[in-house]
Write a protein that binds this DNA or RNA. Sequence first.
DNA 1: AATACTTATCGTAATATTGCGATATAAAAT
DNA 2: ATTTTATATCGCAATATTACGATAAGTATT
Lengths: 109, 109
Amino acid sequence: MGLTRSEIFTDEQNQLSTLLKAIAHPARIAILQRILISNTCICGDLVEELGLAQATISQHLKELKTAGIIQGTIEGVSVCYCINPKTWKLLEKRLGTFFGSYKGETSCC
Amino acid sequence: MGLTRSEIFTDEQNQLSTLLKAIAHPARIAILQRILISNTCICGDLVEELGLAQATISQHLKELKTAGIIQGTIEGVSVCYCINPKTWKLLEKRLGTFFGSYKGETSCC
DNA sequence: AATACTTATCGTAATATTGCGATATAAAAT
DNA sequence: ATTTTATATCGCAATATTACGATAAGTATT
């Protein structure tokens, strides 16, 4: 026990939940919002602006990167992060389908 | 440590992450998809269809309910669950804004 | 009232997440 | 080559999540 039983769900359900889990943390939402504003973002800026330890920020960035939501390029001594367009659009589309399939409040309990 | 530092984030960031966390599990995605299809859903059906123990399904339903994503009404001996329209639309809108604020792949790293 | 049926809650074990100090790694500047 | 600067990784403690058996609680039927 204590382990999500992924094998009983579809690949789509597992994928969607993995992507959502990567975003479902206030620090990671803040990081993404910061990237979305300036299109690009250097790790050090986040450490200053968010008020979390450098190790913590680095860990959150890694999670977003592992999930494929952002990508990082080494730029001299620092690392430049930005949105991974492919995953971003995929997730946007999946969520659109998911939320859009709600038929409204008819015959609800 | 080991505790999310909510106090350093905005209410919006905390709220969004809470809602996303509620959805970010394959079982809960499956539950929501099932509700979305038939507009309504009885707990017992989920137990049969998903292949998780009754206690586990009940716990997932509680999490979705606590987050305000679904609502349940007692219907005789069983409980009828459906989408909470208000939260659903709020989350849909917030996610739309979030994902829509991506400006595209220009000058990415 | 006793039984059947459905859902919720409790308790618990296994695993995952969060945060951070310390330290490693790697490139740039001196 | 040494020092500075920026990021990643390790190790750990605190907390959270996941799953489920057992059992409680509540309604319906007999």
